[in-house]
Design a protein around this nucleic acid. Structure first.
Length: 472
RNA sequence: GUCCCCGUCGUCUAGAGGCCUAGGACGCUGGCCUUUCAAGCCGGCAACACGGGUUCGAAUCCCGUCGGGGACACCA
């Protein structure tokens, strides 16, 4: 069996797009599933838009998701360079080969000239083609020119067998003489991509369906160069709720790191995007090991999927409840700080907090909001909560329970008993007694069960907070 | 407009000719549990785009229509 080598080849023109993240994930899973190599390649040939900051942002996004690469920036590898701008000579050399073999030509037509022809063709209601356009001009190397690929002029078509879509073809006449090298000698996507996929011995190219049309040109290039083309797999697109392709401009959820800020666990996000376009029987939740074990292109769907924020939230809560508490606790720390925690974030207490709050929060932001009161001195009292539960009646009940609590240790049984007795004495429901305690110690109407809450706070702090509430 | 891809509940999907009276999940919804809020458990609503074929039999195969999306840069 030949080696599986797949790549993720983003262009560093901004943050890591969620669609890119899913493309990376599918490739990564395929590589891990088959014990192959996952390569990261930076396609930075768009000089006007590429920035080093973007490279870093993309690496950071991949690291956050845990998608490690075997070759690429920072780790190197035998097939580098992994930045396209570092191998311009190579592209020029290949372009020359194509010109020499008659598969490409130098073209000095300007954009304007081409546009003119396009309009003319439209006016004449005939299909516009690049046929013969500049092919016959002979140019010296010093006149400014681009290098164009010479698409076969005879009748015929290019086809490839897509791993998820099946056989797809396109007629030669529907493909234009696309540009290989710009007039500054820098390669365009379609060309750099082919040279690199060949040079890096990529066995399968997995990318979004928006690239299907460029695949035909690439197939032509592989053929002209006499190189064996890799396999291709085109993944369904991710659409926003407006059914348009998820774009950075229109959809905030397109920004991977936005989800980190929103308190989404990386594993939850992974689980969510892996199910957008892929399935394994009726399974909904997957550990990383399961994803790797089950993944295959045969179960990648063909239809675009719509972003579903509710399901992401559900998955996030699911994983907050099912991942080791220590892992969730570690992820919670920055959110607690952000929420205003001032006390020491001690690991054991953090884990207890996670255990107590994970059934009540869908995100780490929510968990921090509910949990920050356990990591502060005193409470920030919610006015509405106070008005509702710490009126005359509430305070009277609170005074009484506090007395009983102060007289015992804080075992769950004792706390239960104290509440029960007070409720019984006054012929009121348990809630009547419990709520004032809850509000007094947390400042909110929402918290875990009372004994759990008091335990989290510690006897001393809890009694002190009740005392403060009683003083008004 | 041209080319390419796609078309099962609102959404993500299972489904590779009989196992489908179409299954699961999110959401919505009724109930149980309950000291708050949740979580959990039990139940409900809800889909094969349409029209022709092929076949004893079609969500599954073929054709057409309609619908949706994508690509049409010296961007990737």
């Amino acid at each position: 069996m030949s080696t599986v080598r797949v790549r993720f080849a983003p262009s560093p023109t901004g943050y890591l797009h969620i669609g890119g993240a899913r493309t990376a994930l599918f490739n990564w899973l395929h590589a891990r599933n088959l014990k192959g190599q996952f390569i990261l390649r930076v396609e930075d040939t768009d000089q006007s838009r590429s920035t080093p900051e973007s490279v870093e942002a993309i690496l950071e996004g991949l690291r956050w998701l845990g998608l490690n690469w075997d070759e690429g920036p920072e780790v190197g590898g035998e097939y580098g360079p992994y930045f396209q701008m570092r191998k311009l000579e190579r592209y020029r050399e290949v372009a020359e080969t194509l010109i020499a073999s008659g598969h490409a030509y130098r073209c000095s037509c300007t954009k304007e000239e081409l546009e003119e022809r396009r309009l003319l063709a439209e006016k004449q209601k005939r299909l516009y083609r690049y046929e013969g356009l500049c092919r016959n001009k002979t140019l010296s190397r010093d006149t400014p020119h681009v290098v164009r690929f010479k698409v076969p002029q005879e009748a015929g078509s290019v086809c490839f067998l897509d791993e998820v879509l099946g056989r797809i073809c396109k007629q030669y006449s529907d493909i234009e003489d696309f540009i290989l090298l710009r007039n500054d000698g820098i390669p365009l996507y379609n060309f750099g991509c082919v040279v690199d996929d060949h040079d890096m011995a990529i066995s399968l190219v997995g990318r979004g369906q928006e690239h299907i049309n460029s695949t035909f040109g690439q197939m032509l290039l592989f053929e002209a160069l006499g190189w064996q083309a890799p396999k291709f797999a085109h993944f369904p697109l991710i659409l926003g709720q407006d059914r348009e392709k998820l774009s950075k401009r229109l959809h905030p959820e397109a920004d991977l790191m936005q989800h980190r800020k929103n308190g989404i666990l990386p594993h939850a996000l992974l689980n969510f995007i892996v199910r957008l376009g892929w399935s394994h029987q009726n399974d909904e939740t997957f550990s990383l090991q399961q994803m790797i074990e089950y993944f295959g292109f045969n179960h990648v769907g063909k239809t675009s999927g719509v972003w579903n924020p509710d399901k992401l939230l559900w998955l996030n809560q699911y994983w907050m409840k099912n991942l080791p508490p220590s892992e969730v606790a570690a992820a919670l720390i920055p959110f607690l700080k952000e929420a205003g925690a001032t006390e020491i974030l001690e690991p054991a207490k953090l884990e207890k907090t996670v255990l107590a709050l994970r059934e009540r929060s869908k995100t780490l932001v929510e968990m921090a909001r509910l949990g920050v009161c356990y990591f502060q001195k005193g409470v920030t009292m919610d006015a509405a909560a106070k008005a509702k539960h710490l009126g005359a009646e509430g305070l009277a009940l609170l005074r009484e329970v506090r007395e009983r609590l102060a007289a015992t240790d804080f075992s769950p049984a004792n706390i239960e008993a104290a509440i029960r007795e007070v409720a019984q004495t006054h012929q009121v429901g348990l809630g009547k007694v419990a709520q004032p305690i809850r509000v007094a110690v947390t400042g909110q109407t929402i918290s875990p069960g009372i004994s759990e809450t008091l335990d989290l706070l510690g006897r001393e702090e809890a009694l002190a907070r009740m005392q403060t509430a009683l003083k008004g």
